[in-house]
């Protein structure tokens, strides 16, 4: 997982990110560039960006801060 790749996706809006997420889930070619060594990693980056933006909206925080929280979630899951 590439934190910089998730942060780069924060420039996109949620609708675009959800569209990209759906393209990967449906096995379709991505309509925009997403960094990742494979489709799985690309999807993780998109999931992270979506989560960070949604959390930022809900909590009134900065998306970059929520990316750090996302990474903490990931680390806890495999601790």
């Amino acid at each position: 997982m590439n934190i910089a790749a998730i942060k780069k996706l924060l420039d996109k809006d949620l609708n675009t990110l959800r569209k990209l997420e759906n393209e990967l889930l449906e096995g379709e070619p991505l309509s925009e560039e997403v960094i990742g060594v494979d489709e799985g990693e690309q999807l993780t980056h998109i999931t992270g960006a979506i989560w960070a933006l949604e959390q930022a909206q809900a909590n009134g925080t900065e998306p970059h801060k929520e990316v750090r929280n996302f990474i903490a979630r990931v680390r806890e899951s495999i601790n």
Binding site: L24, L25, D38, E39, G40, E41, Q42, L43, T44, H45, I46, T47, G48, W51, F70, R73, V74, S77
Partner: peptide, 11 residues
């Protein structure tokens, strides 16, 4: 699996 895991969703 985890909800954040892209590879998990694809598998």
């Amino acid at each position: 699996y985890a909800d954040w895991c892209g590879s998990c969703k694809l598998m």
